[in-house]
Design a protein around this nucleic acid. Structure first.
Lengths: 129, 129
DNA sequence: ATAATTGTTATACTATTAATATAACAGTTA
DNA sequence: TAACTGTTATATTAATAGTATAACAATTAT
């Protein structure tokens, strides 16, 4: 699991870490049940504080992406990530709304927008048939 | 221009204000050249500080959505919002990426995702044909 | 049994951001 | 002259991000 952080970004480090773990799961590089480095090991690897890693891990656990056993360490959720419910869909819509509004203002057509999304979905598609 | 703020949200107030102005432009409720309330009037209207409004206005100006004349006040860009360039598209992709990754993890299909986007594009479509 | 490692918790500190509160300035308009 | 425009400056409060140590309890390896 290679993590690449941008310390100049205004996106918080723990958020970048969260996103890359989630992307790893979506890309199926991280399989259900697979272990992740301990908070200290991960922190040392990428050169940040263990509390920053812990914050990311705690939120990933809270959101169902990983499990944390006191003994076994950190593990990608063996049952898979919980399916989206209505609250997830609502949050997704609320996040998309300003993106689409700006796109409309700037002349990005629905077709182009959709094509852009599809391209990213393909990045996560891996012999799934 | 009705503004609706959620003071409990973790989305900053000035960001909420920005988004609603942009949505108003996308929805064509705010036409090019149309005036917006002065920073003080807007602040009094929605019950926030004038600096918070000013911050939103400055960023909207910086991003090409509005113009601010010392005399004429605040006006929706009469030339229309500048078209998206490559940097806009890159930012859009970067913002969409974690959304799509999480959607993939949670079993939201590309079809559902695209349908969700299309629904929002329709919200902004107004006898444009 | 000892040592090392695990997640977890607590405390403290710095820096940045969000938001508010006054106040003032310079130019425009009524 | 008075009221209003955007703008700037200064100060304060609260919250968040990130780091730095330190310790505890439980497990694992030597």
């Amino acid at each position: 699991m290679y993590i690449n952080l941008d310390f100049e970004s205004n996106e918080p480090i723990y958020t970048q870490l969260k996103h890359q773990v989630i992307a790893g799961i979506a890309r199926k590089e991280l399989a259900p049940g697979e272990g992740l480095p301990s908070v200290r090991a991960m922190a040392a690897d990428i050169g940040i504080n263990l509390h920053t890693v812990n914050k990311a891990y705690q939120q990933l656990k809270q959101e169902g992406f990983i499990l944390i056993h006191r003994q076994k360490g950190v593990v990608v959720n063996p049952d898979g990530v919980p399916q989206a419910d209505e609250s997830h869909r609502a949050r997704l819509e609320n996040t998309l709304h300003p993106l689409i509004a700006e796109s409309v203002c700037r002349g990005i057509s629905e077709e182009e927008f959709v094509k852009l999304c599809s391209k990213q979905f393909q990045e996560f598609a891996k012999e799934e048939k």
